[in-house]
């Protein structure tokens, strides 16, 4: 079994920092006139997208192509899935065609983990239900690193405020893990109906009043409000949400000068964020998308091209894909366990 990236937990702080360091090299590759290296020549990456996605899917495809890998892309609507083929059969079919890695987006939490049990190929979770979206969190951390600078890749001393529909957000879950792993303090803000029912063990504090936390925020991470949440009676109306938790012009004025505003996209301008505020310099949504490609290159290179020597273990031989790799005993073993 190869290694996989199913959750931010698979990396830990040292792993995130190694991916950041690798991303620097791939950002340099992406800036060239010929943004392509032969690192994954001959590898095949299958993109299994069971949910609609534009940016994540194109970002992974661009990353794979810049590494010279071949991409097998799979759109559910035009595939045998519409004829009733199961996820497992699809994975085994693509595995038989020689896929070295699967990039999986699925509406059910744990789908990527299931896929990793059924295949010897590496698996990247590109979003599973309400659970996790680790490469988005890595792209966000890298964006913050580029913005705040520093060679250490840490977020110590930074206060991140995550606003909105935390309950249904895989992005929020992955980012809470990544931000806190790197040393940031995280506050969740939003209506009680959109908070997870149980936050025991989460290293976060919870606040209802956004105005109170904004003056002390280094990072404001706005989550997308899906319109069906108002239909589910979790919110009285979108206007009510905007009035209490939207980043309006008045609230933007409460932010300290160093603050950065992030959003995983696609943005509902006028709902989570004022249309004019979204275009201000502190809003780094464009950078989040741009940095997605080098970060995903780093993830694919880590999974397929190389071991990932971290600070403490450089020089050690890490498991690489292939039959002679060390076999972790448990499914989805963390990087530490693989070592």
């Amino acid at each position: 079994m190869s290694r996989s990236l199913l959750s931010v937990d698979d990396l830990g702080a040292a792993g995130i920092q190694s991916i950041m360091r690798l991303s620097d090299s791939f950002a340099e590759v992406s800036s060239r006139s010929i943004p392509r290296v032969p690192a994954l020549r001959g590898k095949t990456i299958a993109a299994l997208f069971y949910e609609d996605s534009t940016r994540t899917r194109l970002s992974f495809e661009a990353a794979a192509k810049r590494l010279s890998a071949d991409v097998m892309s799979f759109a559910v609507k035009s595939s045998s899935m519409s004829k009733g083929e199961s996820l497992r059969d699809t994975v085994q079919t693509l595995g038989a065609m020689g896929a070295d890695a699967f990039v999986v987006r699925h509406a059910s939490a744990g789908a990527a983990r299931l896929v990793s049990r059924w295949t010897d190929a590496a698996v990247v979770n590109a979003g599973d239900g309400w659970h996790e979206h680790p490469t988005q969190a890595l792209a966000d951390c890298y964006t913050l690193h580029r913005r705040f600078g520093g060679a250490a890749f840490t977020m110590a001393g930074l206060h991140a405020v995550i606003v909105g529909d935390v309950k249904h957000s895989r992005v929020a879950r992955s980012n809470v893990k990544a931000f806190t792993a790197l040393g940031a303090r995280v506050t969740l803000v939003g209506p009680a109906t959109l908070m997870p029912p149980c936050l025991d063990g989460w290293p976060v504090s919870v606040e209802v009043d956004l105005d109170r936390v904004l003056p002390d925020a280094d990072i404001v991470y706005l989550l997308r409000l899906q319109s069906e949440r108002t239909d589910e009676s979790l919110l009285p109306s979108q206007r009510e949400y905007t009035a209490r938790w939207g980043l309006t012009r008045r609230r933007a004025a409460l932010l300290p000068g160093r603050a950065t505003v992030m959003h995983p996209g696609p943005m509902n301008r006028g709902v989570e964020i004022d249309p004019e505020v979204a275009d201000r310099e502190f809003c780094v949504v464009g950078d989040q998308v741009r940095n997605g490609v080098p970060v995903r290159m780093a993830v694919l290179f880590w999974l397929l091209g190389s071991g990932l020597p971290t600070g403490e273990s450089s020089g050690q031989v890490l498991a690489v894909d292939g039959g002679d790799a060390h076999q972790p005993d448990s499914i989805g073993a963390s990087d530490e366990e693989v070592r």
């Binding site: 090299s25 590759v29 290179f301 397929l304 091209g305 190389s306």
Partner: peptide
């Protein structure tokens, strides 16, 4: 220049760039 991504022994051993090419 870091040539990690161009090596012909990728996958045979851990390879990681030291610093981005300039």
């Amino acid at each position: 220049m870091d040539i990690s991504f161009y090596r012909d022994d990728l996958g045979l051993r851990p390879v990681a760039p030291e610093e981005a090419t300039f």
